[in-house]
Design a protein around this nucleic acid. Sequence first.
DNA 1: GACGTTTAATTGTCTGACAAATGAAAATTG
DNA 2: CAATTTTCATTTGTCAGACAATTAAACGTC
Lengths: 245, 245
Amino acid sequence: MKIDPKNPADLSAQIAKAIKDAIISGDLPVDERLPSEAEMAEQFAVSRPTVREALKRLGAQSLIRTQRGATGGAFVNRLRFEDAYGQQITTSTLLLSMNEVSFATACEARYALERACAPLSAERRTADHLATMRAEAHRQSQPGLTDEAFCASDVAFHRALVDAACNPVLSYQLAGAVEAMQPLMNMITFSARSREKIIGYHSAIADALEAQDAAGADAQLAALAAYTQELAQDVFAQRDAARNG
Amino acid sequence: MKIDPKNPADLSAQIAKAIKDAIISGDLPVDERLPSEAEMAEQFAVSRPTVREALKRLGAQSLIRTQRGATGGAFVNRLRFEDAYGQQITTSTLLLSMNEVSFATACEARYALERACAPLSAERRTADHLATMRAEAHRQSQPGLTDEAFCASDVAFHRALVDAACNPVLSYQLAGAVEAMQPLMNMITFSARSREKIIGYHSAIADALEAQDAAGADAQLAALAAYTQELAQDVFAQRDAARNG
DNA sequence: GACGTTTAATTGTCTGACAAATGAAAATTG
DNA sequence: CAATTTTCATTTGTCAGACAATTAAACGTC
């Protein structure tokens, strides 16, 4: 774990990279305590603030955690799926909003991925997953629900669908795809008619999963994907028309 | 953008969160210049090192970039897919290695996701994608290739397959799933016989994509997934037998 | 032995300073 | 006047030393 070919710039970045590499390679196992800041400062021949900047970089990625006190210090953090969800969602959301990704592209990706776990979900869904999906579908049918609340419930429904695959890796990968869509979905105004249709698809999906009918679930997801795209197209067409004259 | 309910701990984390929220909400647009470190220190009523620690946190997530000099400073960074790939892959790799995710689980997720983009890839693959896949398949047939090089080429093949869907969101989401598998795949020793079979599947996949045969590509991917699982099972069974006896 | 106290170690923060980079303004020169 | 060079102010990157807050272990007392 060494740094610094006499390059007095980016020292904290170099130190962060050295520690990060050690963690990735397994050289620093989980829960291992790093040397104290003072020790590292001496070891790397830099000042303590520089070491601290490096540690903050790692902390921002949840690679380490710090603890004050006599037995405190910086420890290699066990990266948990729950911790990674947040970062994944933030990154996905920013990628979509900063790169002018079209609604169609994001929507296509989302439904392609969801359909990928439909067969697994049909096989493994538990009563819990089904109950969550039913509850969200019911909430979506409540009158007076704002568009935002409708979208939030939609996301919750689809997360349950994904989680029903009982594969944490899949859940993690799809969390970003599903949740990052929410800001885009919020641009759509859902009429009572369109809400009704969407809830119909949701119920049909839950039915298919309950019957462990993978093909049926896939078909309903495909139909929902097509309908969502259609809705969005209408919204954007109207918006463009209003803008142009 | 405010902080600090008189809580003198985690000041840098609070500042980082405030700025991060401003970026996510769009309050700070891309390429906007943040105030100088000295100004922010005054604004937040903290010292400059504290501000710097906050900025380093954001820099580690590629949310900002910094530049020295007269017109320098910290700027809101346009998060690009290429930048996000690296973080996604690192995080996925660590998640797998730190959470004792079984080979079967990771492999299942990976192939489920790849099959999700097979139809799109069949539709949109370009000559470039096909050429890359052919080239990697050919490389895999070279004698004397180490297992690691074989795995690396395997990853390159599958990345081309994913990229052929021509959907950057899909490519981003799947980069982690595909690349994070590499360390796990490296645990497998590939016999000449098994390499031959895998290359056969790869060629068949490339053929199906070239013919825009979505169903065929899906079938070959499914078969490859099953074969990979079978190979892994053998390896782990042998390893367990050796350990126990 | 149980319980309160002290103490040492460690992170979190502050102050003040200097070095290095960098673009803009000013000065110089043709 | 135009082009080039020099100077300079601004900003980040780093350093040194200091103090506060936290925490668990060591210690002392009853």
